[in-house]
Design a protein around this nucleic acid. Structure first.
Length: 575
DNA sequence: TTTCAATCGAAAATTAAACCTGCGTTTAA
């Protein structure tokens, strides 16, 4: 479901960008940015609020509340439209390129009339940029690098974006009479970190009502194809949705086929051939007589192939077929197995929500324990002090166990400095129940230095979790260059967990690295790094990624009972 | 533009690295 809050957040962020590009009103831009974030992270639905209710949200005053009301009522905000008319959308696109901010984007537009990423790439090739004041060779290089990364991920969208759009479509289509099943399939069901397009499958006798309904959904911006077998549309956010309607008795075969992956399906089809069968999206058939032997459910199809049902997150032909044939498929970790979140923030640093509210929301999710891990002083922008974190500890202790017995852990997110050092001296760190440590800057220290840096952090007896280990940002920044095998081995050796950060633009570690780390015997923590209440629900993306890495509950420390977790957090120390 | 404290107006999130240019601007965490 695309939350109205997210829509408003996007609108205010766009306005903030436009103000920043036009220049001269830095505080105004910052105010809109802050309000955008606050609304995105606000737990209640803003579309149910009036101006007075909106002003309750911190960072939202008279002026912004008015604009939000205008947007919710009319779908437009006059002043935003005015700015849009002055600055082409392509110029705003430019500032999504890393190292290219609002000032440079405006300079490019004013001096060279560049208003799209493609035009920018051409201008660099034509060596037009270097004559511009403030631009040089290195800037050109950085911009080109940013554009290349962008193009690599072009057309692919974040898992969370796809999931929200897909759940919307599935909910709408499920309501139509005659719908026996409706679900999304494809790489989305396999929980890949990015998704090309969304495949939705319906089981029904007649296809037309569903095909028509898809083209008429409010979220549909453009109809690409519209037929009886397949309909494709594009949503306002540019996501392509493909819909197929299958006969109810072919539901299982359809889901199996459209879930993929291609490599997995090649294997299942080969197995079918060896058994004298033929597998297609319509069912599993006898190769000779042509009669259908299985198709109603995935379970039935897999069973007839001599396989157990295989979780979609494993269907990548990475050994799941062999494991299934041997009866040794892993019992992958699920959201229900997670007993607590070990990396979260509050408004003491860059979170949006006060401690008490985050804790109450966590308890509402049924957690047995929950860690609060605000930033430490070395991330200067957060202005953390010893006094502040100790005062927070008192508040955490007083809330401990107050929500149906949920236990609270007081932690912190340390910054791993260029040489692997962290914020506080050992004596001070001793006071925390757990420490997450992560790299936040100095990404280009070189492979050897980066490896040493991460290994040193693991060797710190107070560091329990390496947060977002590669620090990648999907489509924006590659992971750091380090010998990850060495880091994973150090994690296993020292009893330091690797985080699977569930923020949709991170999903860090990613599936392939998880598989390698597991081989080294490392443990993992699936955490949300939540900065607001809605972000606590990102957990599902972290769990999906963990499944893609074949992790079982035993591999994931925050599925463990608190006693076992505490033992792990001691890292064999005796104090 | 918001917030806070005062009733109109001032202050607001810091630091460092990178880059371009020759000391200052831009970006990003």
């Amino acid at each position: 479901m695309v939350r109205p809050n997210d829509e408003v957040e996007a609108l205010l962020q766009e306005y903030a960008d436009l103000i920043a590009i036009t220049g001269g009103e830095a505080f105004k831009a910052r105010a809109y940015e802050k309000a955008a974030r606050a609304i995105g992270g606000y737990p209640a639905d803003v579309s149910h609020l009036d101006a007075a209710g909106l002003k309750e949200i911190p960072g939202v005053g008279t002026s912004i509340a008015e604009k939000v009301v205008e947007y919710l009522r009319t779908g437009h905000v006059t002043v935003v439209d005015e700015r849009r008319a002055r600055i082409p959308a392509g110029v705003r696109q430019l500032i999504t390129i890393p190292t290219l901010g609002p000032k440079k984007a405006m300079a490019l537009y004013e001096n060279l009339h560049i208003s799209s990423v493609n035009e920018l790439a051409d201008a660099i090739t034509a060596e037009k940029l270097r004559d511009l004041r403030g631009f040089g060779e290195k800037t050109e290089e950085n911009i080109l690098h940013g554009i290349a990364l962008m193009r690599q991920s072009r057309g692919r969208i974040l898992l969370s974006t796809a999931m929200e759009a897909a759940e919307d479509v599935v909910a709408e289509l499920s309501r139509i009479p005659g719908c026996e099943h409706c679900a999304y399939a494809g790489s989305l069901r396999r929980m890949k970190e990015t998704v090309g397009d969304i495949d939705v499958l319906v089981a029904a006798r007649r296809s037309a009502p569903f095909m028509d309904a898809l083209t008429e959904l409010p979220s549909t911006a453009e109809v690409i194809v519209h037929g009886g077998k397949k309909t494709s549309v594009r949503t306002a956010e540019g996501v392509q949705v493909d819909l197929r309607v299958v006969r109810p008795d072919a539901w299982g075969a359809g889901m199996q086929y459209f879930t993929g992956s291609k490599a997995h399906n090649i294997r299942t089809r080969t197995i079918a051939v060896h058994l004298g069968l033929k597998l297609s999206e319509y069912g599993l058939f006898d190769a000779d007589g042509g009669e259908r032997v299985a198709s109603r459910s995935e379970d039935e199809v897999y069973a007839r192939l001599g396989l157990p049902w295989i979780p979609p997150t494993l269907r990548e032909d990475r050994g799941e077929i062999e494991a299934g044939l041997r009866g040794e498929l892993p019992r992958v970790v699920t959201e229900r197995d997670i007993r607590g979140d070990l990396h979260t923030h509050t408004d003491l640093t860059d979170g949006l929500t006060p401690l008490e509210e985050m804790v109450a929301a966590a308890a509402g999710r049924g957690y047995a324990y929950y860690a609060v891990t605000d930033h430490a002083p070395n991330l200067y922008m957060q202005r953390m002090t010893d006094e502040k974190i100790l005062a927070q500890r008192e508040r955490v202790r007083s809330l401990d166990g107050r929500h149906h017995g949920m236990r609270l852990l007081h932690g912190t997110e340390l910054n791993i400095g260029p040489g692997g050092e962290v914020d506080w001296p050992d004596a001070f760190l001793q006071g925390f129940d757990l420490c997450v440590a992560a790299v936040h800057s100095h990404f280009n220290v070189g492979r050897r230095a980066m490896t040493r840096r991460l290994v040193r952090a693991c060797e710190n007896p107070r560091v329990n979790v390496i947060g977002h280990p590669t620090t990648r940002l999907l489509g924006k920044r590659p992971g750091v260059d380090a010998d990850l095998d060495e880091v994973f081995a150090a994690c296993a050796r020292t009893g330091t967990a690797l985080e699977i950060n569930a923020q949709p633009d991170r999903l860090d570690l990613g599936d392939e690295d998880i598989l390698r780390a597991k081989d080294h015997g490392a443990r993992f923590a699936v955490d949300t790094d939540a900065h607001s209440i809605p972000q606590l629900a990102y957990l599902r993306y972290g769990v999906g990624t963990a499944q893609r890495g074949w992790l079982t509950p035993d591999d994931v420390i925050n599925t463990w009972p608190l006693r076992r977790l505490r033992r792990f957090l001691r890292k064999d120390r005796t104090d």
